[in-house]
Structure formats: C-alpha cells, structure tokens
Design a protein around this nucleic acid. Sequence first.
DNA 1: AACTCGGGGCA
DNA 2: TGCCCAGAGTT
Length: 215
Amino acid sequence: MTIKERYRRAMEWFQTAIPEAETELHYKSPFQLLVAVILSAQCTDKRVNMVTPPLFEAYPTAEAMSTASLDDIYSYIKSVSYPNNKAKSLLGAAKMLVEEYNGEVPSDIDSLMRLPGVGRKTANVMLSVVWNKAAMAVDTHVFRVSERIGLTTGSKTPLQTEKELCRYIPEELIPRAHHWLILHGRYVCKARRPDCLNCGLTQVCRYYMQESKKG
DNA sequence: AACTCGGGGCA
DNA sequence: TGCCCAGAGTT
C-alpha cells in the first residue's frame, strides 16, 4: 500500500470519527489555554484540570498573572509542579506577554517559542487550536498513531514527524487531522492495550498486523 | 542530537 | 521497587 493510499484512508476516517470528548477547545481565552498546555507537559490532564479553575479565578489574564509573586502562583499549582520550574515559566510567560505582546498571546511560532515553558509542541498547539493554522503539534499520541497506521515511516524525531505529516496532509485538513490524531491516540489507539475493535484503520495498521500474527 | 529533569502510573 | 512516561531546557 502506498503512502498516499494510507493518507487517503486516514483522511476519510478523520472526516467521520471525531469522538465526543473533552478537548482543548474548552478554553476561555488563548492565555488560559496557554497556561493549561504549559502545565500539561509531563503531567496528566486530570491533575491540570484540578488546579486550573482556582488558578484562573485568581489570574484570569496575562496582566493579572504578571503582577503576581512566584510563591503565589506556585501555591496554586503545587500539585502539578515539579520543584521550582512551572511557576517560573508561567510568571515569565505572563510578564513577556504583557511587556512585549500587549498582553495578548502571539500568533507566530517564533514568538510563541520565546515564551518560557513553551517549546515546539506547545507553540504548535496554540497555532492549531487558537488560530486554526496548519500546524502539527507532535506529542506522543500523534507520534505513536502516525507510526502505527503508517502515516510516518520510522521518523526518529518529533520534528521529522511534523514535517512528514504536513507534507502529505492538505493544509486545510491539518488542524482537523491534528485534533483527530490526539483524540484517537488518547482514547482508542492507546499506548497500552489499544481498542483496535473500535478503530476503522486496522487495515492499514502495522500494530494491528503484528498483533494479529501473534494470534 | 543526546541528555537531564523528577513525580506519577503501573507492573 | 523499578521502569517508563512527556515534554522543555540545556549542552
């Protein structure tokens, strides 16, 4: 099966199979999404969802957060923060937003990646979710699913995966494909014990083929 | 590009 | 208990 055929089948699935589920789309502002995504790194969504309501009540905007003290921010996110780093990232990002971007979240990748706590993945999430741009944020879900169903072939780094996916997926479908890959990876094509019975892509899936052989 | 970081989830 | 995780930051 050619790579284009694999993509064609995946695209068909993308159109029909978005599951009903909580997504990053449930955010009140770009700033609050940014904070949530920064906190999400190395941490489960559940725990992030525990701390964000009180955090956003205290600091609903970049401006509000930028004037807070490190300790105050830290007190809100203790349970999802490693010693010292995330409160610093949040405060630093809030300050940079206020000082350099008029309190708004910028919409280009270079500006986003200058923010503390924001790497390539987080920056691409913002571009994709907030501005619907043709950005592919490669996290482990996207990486794993793409490898299994053959959209990538042995990509070694997230950046290589990102480039390969963007090469074959039509620009206007990239935000949807991104959304789909993440949800599919989270709820169906899980790292351990994936729900292959609920997946429409078993015909193109290397993982499924392997498991089938095992019996 | 490879390494570090470090609490949580899971076997 | 020990292994792996998921990203950002560092070298």
